[in-house]
C-alpha cells in the first residue's frame, strides 16, 4: 500500500513538465526515504535524478519499496487536470498495475480520481558517486534559462568556462559567435538574485545546448540553479525543490576527438 499526500500539488505538475521532454518512460521508486526517479534520455547522453523526500509530504505511507513504471506524457496529461492549488495524493496497492492520482481542491469541494495504467520498464540504474567539482556556479535560474535560449539561436553547443573572472558561456555558428560572462555578485538585496562562483581550479567544458535548454524547463521549481563542473565528469545542473528535495540533470560533455 502506497499513499503520498502532497499539499503543494503544483510541485508535482512542475516536476513532470521539467522532465517529460527528456524522458518518455520512467520508473518512479517509492521507499521510506521518499519518492524518487532516475532515468536517462534515449541517447544515454543525459540523466535526470529526482528526489522528493518523505518528510516533504503531509502524509507518507509506503509499506514496502515499490517501483512504478509510468509513461511521463500520460502522467502529465493526468496531472494537467489538477488545479494549481490542488492537493495531490498518489495511491497504489501492492501488486496493482495501476496508480491513482487524487486531486482535492483547497476548499475540499471538488475531489477527482484519475487512474493510470502502469507499465513494465526495463531501466538501467546507474551509481552516481559523490564527487568533488572543480567549479560550482550558483546563479538565478531565469538568467541561466535566458542564456541557454539566447545562445541556441546562434549555435548548437555551449562552452562553459569558469575562471576567477567569472563564468563564461560561449557559442558559435554559421551566423557568428557569442560570449556571455556572468561575474560573481553577492551584493544584491535578494539572495535569489545572487551569482556565486566557487572555483577550485579553472575549468572549461563543451555541452549540447539542446539538452541544456531542456533542463531549464525546471526553472519554475527554483529561483536558483547550481551548475557543478569538472573536466572528468558530466556537468550537474541542479534545481532544489523547496523543503523537499531536488531535480538534478547530468549531461555528458562533448570532447575533442
Amino acid at each position: 500500500m502506497l499513499e503520498l499526500r502532497l499539499v503543494q500539488g503544483s510541485l508535482l505538475k512542475k516536476v513532470l513538465e521539467a522532465i517529460r521532454e527528456l524522458v518518455t518512460d520512467a520508473n518512479f521508486d517509492c521507499s521510506g526515504t521518499g519518492f524518487s526517479l532516475q532515468a536517462m534520455d534515449s541517447s544515454h547522453v543525459a540523466l535526470v535524478a529526482l528526489l522528493l523526500r518523505a518528510e516533504g509530504f503531509e502524509h507518507y505511507r509506503c509499506d514496502r519499496n515499490l517501483s512504478m513504471g509510468m509513461n511521463l506524457n500520460n502522467m502529465a496529461k493526468m496531472l494537467r487536470c489538477a488545479g494549481n492549488d490542488d492537493i495531490i495524493t498518489i495511491k497504489a496497492d501492492d501488486g496493482s498495475d495501476t496508480v491513482t492520482f487524487m486531486f482535492e481542491s483547497p476548499k475540499q469541494d471538488k475531489i477527482a480520481d484519475f487512474e493510470m495504467k502502469l507499465m513494465d520498464i526495463d531501466s538501467e540504474h546507474l551509481g552516481i558517486p559523490d564527487s568533488e567539482y572543480q567549479a560550482i556556479v550558483r546563479m538565478p535560474s531565469a538568467e541561466f534559462m535566458r542564456i541557454c535560449k539566447d545562445l541556441s539561436s546562434i549555435g548548437d553547443t555551449v562552452i562553459i568556462s569558469v575562471t576567477k573572472e567569472g563564468v563564461k558561456f560561449s557559442t558559435s555558428g554559421e551566423i557568428g559567435s557569442a560570449n556571455i560572462v556572468c561575474r560573481q555578485n553577492q551584493t544584491v538585496d535578494k539572495p535569489e538574485e545572487a551569482t556565486v562562483i566557487e572555483m577550485q581550479e579553472p575549468v572549461s567544458l563543451t555541452f549540447a545546448l539542446r539538452y541544456m535548454n531542456s533542463f531549464t524547463k525546471a526553472s519554475s521549481l527554483s529561483d536558483q540553479v547550481t551548475i557543478s563542473l569538472s573536466s572528468e565528469l558530466p556537468v550537474v545542473v541542479e534545481y532544489k525543490i523547496a523543503e523537499m528535495g531536488y531535480i538534478r540533470f547530468y549531461l555528458a560533455p562533448k570532447i575533442e576527438e
Binding site: E124, L126, G127
Partner: peptide, 14 residues
C-alpha cells in the same frame, strides 16, 4: 570536431 560522450561512460550500472 567534438564527439558526444555518453553518461554510461562515466557512471556504471548499479
Amino acid at each position: 570536431q567534438c564527439i558526444q560522450k555518453k553518461i554510461t561512460e562515466y557512471f556504471s550500472k548499479n
